[in-house]
Amino acid sequence: MSLVFAGVCSHGPGITGRKDMADPQHVAALYAAFAQMRHKLEAAQPDVLVVIAAEHFANFFMNNMPAYCLGLADEYSGPIEDPEWLGIARTTFPGAPGLSKRLIQSLLEDVDVAYAEEWKFDHGISVPLHFLTPACDLPIIPANINCQGPPLTPLHRAWAFGESLGRACTAAPERIAIIATGGISHWPATPDSGKINEAWDREFLTRWAANDKAKLLSYTDAETYAEAGQGGFEIRTFIALACATQGMPAAVDYYQPIPIFAVGCTVGTVDVR
């Protein structure tokens, strides 16, 4: 068993960039939840961290948009955003190209995944890494699912991607940690920013923690758009991780809607033992 850690978390840019505009108690509790997630990650002593992300046009555009892509780079840089705006300094992260290549080769048995030897991180990965690998020394492999530019991959394909990725990680000798990062309901970067459907979020997280495939895949994009906003399309990352960790107990360690962060902030972990 080479999967040593798995979890999910939010990545909204406000979490770091607008922390001074939020209720200090909410900020303290969220940051403590991230710190606890980091402690669990470090205790697992991973060799590499795979990040299932939903990037926001930092690398991929509608001229050639991959539904799925894995990083194959020696190193990654980020964030692309203004560091002062995001509250995170620009830095580089080591990659793990040897493992990347093996994972991609394995995934290609099931999924027509793209790969990229160049990759810039935006807030979607930089915010989680800011909390989870503050020394920027843990090798990273980004794994993107297009959640921003429709047409989008169906949820059952995100599940299949997670299944293939989980299988590939399990077969590798390295100690692999894997996280998925995305929003649940949110209407980011719009005048609706701050709107959060807490009931929808809690129902989704219940399904995620239960690893309930049928219920996780039952959402239509039309329903998600209506009830959880365009940001809700990012549930694909959580669904992929749920499949990668099938049969393992999962728990939502923290959930709190924080409107100025534009999302119901979430931290969850999976017991991979």
């Binding site: 505009m21 926001h56 921003q148 980011p188 970067a189």
Partner: peptide, 21 residues
């Protein structure tokens, strides 16, 4: 313009978050 593109462009143009909204 997709909000995820516009948000970053607004920041590049110097818009503070409340002004952007």
């Amino acid at each position: 313009v997709n909000g995820q593109i516009l948000m970053h462009f607004a920041a590049m143009c110097g818009y503070a978050w409340p002004d952007y909204i």
